[in-house]
Amino acid sequence: TTVKLGDIKVTFDNPEKAKKYAQKLAKIYQLTVHVHGDTIHVK
């Protein structure tokens, strides 16, 4: 599962960890989390 934020891409083996990371980023940057299959976009 890949978390994308602009040019930053972080890949996790564990989808749950990816989701938590995405939510953490979203909170920090006051953005929202969008899940598209294996990719989680923070924008």
Rank of each mutant, 00 (worst) to 15 (best):
T1Q: 04
T1M: 12
T1C: 15
T1V: 12
T2Y: 08
T2R: 04
V3S: 03
V3T: 03
V3K: 03
K4C: 15
K4L: 14
K4T: 09
K4D: 05
L5A: 04
L5M: 13
L5K: 03
G6P: 02
G6M: 07
G6E: 03
G6W: 12
D7S: 15
D7F: 15
D7Y: 15
D7Q: 14
D7H: 15
D7K: 15
I8V: 09
I8H: 14
K9E: 13
K9S: 14
K9H: 11
K9T: 13
V10N: 02
V10L: 11
V10Q: 04
V10P: 01
V10G: 01
T11I: 13
T11S: 09
T11F: 14
T11W: 15
F12E: 00
D13L: 11
D13G: 08
D13H: 09
D13E: 10
N14G: 04
N14C: 11
N14L: 06
N14R: 05
N14E: 06
P15A: 11
P15S: 07
P15K: 09
P15E: 08
E16D: 10
E16Y: 10
E16S: 08
K17A: 13
K17H: 11
A18D: 00
A18M: 03
A18Y: 02
A18R: 01
A18E: 00
K19Q: 09
K19D: 04
K19P: 00
K20Q: 11
K20E: 11
K20R: 12
K20W: 12
K20P: 00
Y21P: 00
Y21D: 00
Y21F: 13
Y21N: 00
Y21L: 05
Y21V: 04
A22G: 01
A22Q: 01
A22D: 00
Q23Y: 13
Q23M: 13
Q23L: 12
K24A: 10
K24Y: 15
K24S: 07
L25V: 06
A26G: 04
A26H: 02
K27A: 11
K27I: 09
K27C: 15
K27T: 08
K27F: 11
K27L: 11
K27H: 08
I28S: 04
I28A: 08
I28N: 04
Y29R: 03
Y29E: 00
Y29N: 02
Y29G: 02
Y29K: 03
Y29S: 02
Q30T: 06
Q30M: 10
Q30G: 15
Q30F: 09
L31N: 01
L31W: 05
L31G: 08
T32Y: 08
T32Q: 09
T32S: 10
T32C: 15
V33F: 07
V33L: 11
V33K: 00
V33Y: 07
V33I: 13
H34F: 13
H34A: 10
H34S: 11
H34Y: 13
H34P: 00
H34C: 15
H34G: 03
V35E: 07
H36T: 11
H36M: 14
H36A: 12
H36E: 14
G37P: 03
G37T: 03
D38C: 12
D38M: 10
D38R: 09
D38N: 14
T39E: 09
T39D: 04
T39I: 13
T39A: 05
T39Y: 08
I40K: 02
I40H: 02
I40M: 05
I40L: 08
I40A: 01
H41F: 13
H41T: 12
H41A: 06
V42L: 15
V42I: 11
K43W: 14
K43D: 08
K43C: 15
K43Q: 12
K43M: 14
K43T: 14
